[in-house]
Simulated scan of single mutants.
Amino acid sequence: MDDVVLVLGATATWTMVGVIWFVQVVHYPLLGTIGADRSAEVGARHQTLTSFVVGPPMAVEGVTTLVLLAAAPEGVAPVLPWVAAVLLAVALGATVALLVPRHRRMLDAPGPEVGAGLVATNWVRTVAWSGRGVLLAVMLLQALAA
């Protein structure tokens, strides 16, 4: 059962790695090009539609992280689930503290600096989720070798 949790967690994490890199390289730079006349409308749709894409994998990540902290699969270095959990906390913390306020600004006070701010602050999440992805891959390899 532990291996199933690890596979589910790794799948959810790598889904988020793909999403966050797409957002970083394509989506946020494009949001910065939207004129003030459409910024609020596009920003609101972005928030609604994005939640459908990221909600399920983020929920799976949360649950599997807690399970892996309680009981890591055989062969997995005990520190790795904890480091992966910290990286998830960094990504989620950056979402709440850095990105949500900038998305609100897109709705309330649009301007080109909003897109630039999204790109700049999203690097925290991009690095955290990428590092988490690597750790989950290592954990999978360790579990397979055990």
Rank of each mutant, 00 (worst) to 15 (best):
A94G: 11
D108S: 15
A109C: 01
G93Y: 00
A89F: 04
G115W: 06
V114A: 01
V96N: 02
G93D: 04
P73G: 06
T95E: 04
L87G: 09
V100H: 01
L87H: 09
G115S: 08
V86P: 03
L80Q: 13
A84P: 05
A77G: 09
M106R: 14
P110Y: 04
P110H: 03
P81D: 09
L88G: 03
A91Y: 06
V79I: 13
A84E: 06
P112Y: 12
A85C: 12
A89L: 14
P73D: 06
V79T: 10
P81M: 09
P73L: 07
G75I: 04
T95Y: 11
V79P: 03
P101R: 04
A116K: 14
V83M: 03
V114M: 04
V79R: 10
V100M: 09
V79A: 15
L80E: 14
A77W: 15
E113R: 09
V96A: 13
R105H: 09
R105I: 02
L92S: 04
D108F: 01
A84V: 08
V90F: 03
V79L: 12
L80H: 12
V79D: 05
E113N: 06
V86F: 03
A70G: 11
L87N: 10
P73C: 07
A85I: 12
P110G: 06
E74H: 09
V100L: 13
A91R: 02
L107E: 13
P101I: 05
H103E: 14
P78F: 00
L87W: 07
V96I: 12
G111P: 14
A70R: 10
L99D: 10
L80M: 14
V90W: 01
R102E: 15
E113F: 05
L92G: 14
P73E: 06
D108H: 11
T95S: 10
R104G: 01
G93S: 00
E74F: 00
A91E: 10
V86T: 08
V96W: 08
W82L: 10
V96T: 10
A116T: 13
A109M: 01
